[in-house]
């Protein structure tokens, strides 16, 4: 790690100096600092800056930015009304990491692209304009949707996939005050500016995440990975599905491991909505989801895997 100044913060404030980085759980930031991928000049320790509670909010819940992943997944209200969120969090990392990782930090988790994490390779996200070694390299874990020729990295997290399917909102505080960003719009596609993972401005800090009123229906999180635990997703699916009179009355689907952001596709959901569930319908939904999918060699399999993961989730959600 490069030297830095360290300062403890008593509350969450907008960032006012370039080179400052906020640290809370530190599980991602310190990892990347050790790899020299991140080199902040100053660390502002917000781990005791409040915002560590889950409160009732407009019929839903507000999760403070510093609520740990472990606390969030253990919260009885989350477990009862938003089981998808609890399941997604529990599918990620390890108990030790979840005890440190925070809600805000997890949203800002950076990609696991091995080239991004290696300063001796070319990466447009780490070093804009340097090129992308993943395009023709080892890219088994990489994105198949919404990629660009500049970057095929994925957003690696699980929690945000659930939050996306649950229509949650990110609350951020900047010099100009508070603004609300739907989670689905929080992360961005790489385009020709992959250095930016999300729409957070330099001065902004996440203060919380709000969940709308609970919705009825089955909530499923399915994560497919190379080993049964403690591994990043090859593909994951977060689903909220409500059946009425043998038809899919309402469906929300978000996918992890496929793109630079948790992927939500309105057309896929539209195809399913109002229809009686069947393997043919699920196939049709997958066709829509994956119409523009593009493999880069190592990750070609994700197209088939996403299709089957979707079928598995829809089958499970619509079973008697």
């Amino acid at each position: 790690m490069r030297p830095f100044d360290y300062r403890r913060m008593a509350d969450l404030q907008p960032v006012d100096q370039p080179g400052d980085r906020l640290i809370a759980g530190g599980t991602n930031l310190l990892d990347l600092m050790k790899l020299d991928v991140e080199a902040p000049r100053r660390l502002l320790d917000i781990s005791r800056a409040g915002q560590d509670r889950i409160t009732e909010h407009e019929g839903g819940l507000r999760i403070g930015a510093l609520v740990t992943n472990a606390d969030c997944a253990a919260d009885p209200r989350i477990r009862a009304d938003y089981p998808l969120l609890a399941k997604a969090i529990l599918a990620g990392a390890s108990p030790q990491l979840r005890n440190k990782a925070t809600t805000g930090g997890n949203l800002c988790q950076r990609t696991r692209c091995q080239y991004f994490m290696a300063t001796d390779t070319r990466c447009n996200k780490r070093q804009p304009g340097s090129g992308c070694d993943a395009l023709q390299g080892v890219n088994r874990n990489h994105a198949i949707l919404g990629t660009s020729e500049a970057c095929i990295a994925t957003y690696p997290g699980d929690m945000a996939v659930a939050l996306t399917a649950l229509d949650a909102t990110v609350e951020v505080l900047g010099q100009g005050g508070t603004r609300l960003i739907p989670v689905a719009e929080f992360h961005r596609l790489p385009g020709d500016d992959p250095a930016r993972d999300n729409v957070l401005r330099d001065d902004e800090v996440i203060t919380g995440v709000t969940l709308p009123e609970p919705v009825a229906g089955r909530q499923i999180y399915r994560k497919i990975r190379d080993r049964s635990s403690y591994a990043f997703a090859l593909v994951s699916v977060g689903a909220v599905i409500k059946l009425r009179e043998d038809r899919i009355a309402r469906v929300a689907l978000a996918f992890g491991g496929l793109a630079h952001k948790p992927w939500r596709d309105p057309q896929t959901e539209a195809i399913l909505t109002g229809q009686p569930p069947s393997p043919a319908l699920f196939d049709q939904a997958a066709d829509a989801l994956l119409a523009k999918a593009k493999g880069r060699g190592g990750n070609d399999f994700k197209i088939a895997l996403a299709r089957r993961a979707l079928a598995a989730v829809l089958t499970e959600a619509t079973e008697e």
Partner: peptide, 11 residues
């Protein structure tokens, strides 16, 4: 329980 390798002593 936490991973002490991903935590700064000063924190």
């Amino acid at each position: 329980r936490i991973n002490s390798c991903l935590s700064l002593a000063i924190m």
